[in-house]
C-alpha cells in the first residue's frame, strides 16, 4: 500500500518535472528575443559564436581558449552529473560549466 502510494507520487513528480522542462524549452525557443547560447545546444549539435559575455578572468580565459565570435563549436558531452559540458572547438576538447556556457551567445556567421 505504502509502496504503491510512494511509486505513484514519484511517477507524478517525474511527469511534472518533465512537463515543466518541455514547456520551458518550447517557451524559450519561441520567444521573440530568445538568444540561443552554448548552454542550449543538445549533444551533437553545433553553433557559431556571435558574442562572448561574462567578465573579468573568466571572459579573458574564454577568449584566450579560442571562443571568439565567428567560431564554430559543437556540444560533445555532458558530465554524468549534468554539469559541466564538453565542447569541440578549433579541433580540441574543452570543458566548461553550464553557467559560463550560458554567457556565450550563438547564431553568428562563420568567417570565410
Amino acid at each position: 500500500m505504502v509502496a504503491a502510494a510512494t511509486a505513484a507520487v514519484a511517477a507524478v513528480t517525474a511527469a511534472a518535472v518533465r512537463f515543466k522542462r518541455v514547456a520551458y524549452e518550447i517557451l524559450k525557443r519561441n520567444l521573440v528575443d530568445f538568444d540561443m547560447t552554448l548552454n542550449d545546444l543538445k549533444i551533437g549539435e553545433t553553433g557559431v559564436i556571435s558574442a562572448v559575455g561574462g567578465e573579468g578572468a573568466l571572459r579573458l580565459r574564454l577568449l584566450d581558449m579560442g571562443l571568439i565570435p565567428h567560431t564554430r563549436v559543437q556540444l560533445q558531452k555532458v558530465a554524468p552529473l549534468g554539469d559541466p559540458i564538453q565542447i569541440l572547438i578549433r579541433g580540441y576538447e574543452l570543458s566548461l560549466r553550464r553557467e559560463d556556457a550560458a554567457k556565450i551567445t550563438l547564431g553568428g556567421e562563420e568567417r570565410q
Binding site: 573568466l58 580565459r61 581558449m65 564538453q86 580540441y92 576538447e93 570543458s95 566548461l96 559560463d100
Partner: peptide, 11 residues
Amino acid sequence: GKPVPFVMELP
C-alpha cells in the same frame, strides 16, 4: 574571492 574559472582542456 572568485575562484579561477573552470575552463579546462580535455587533452
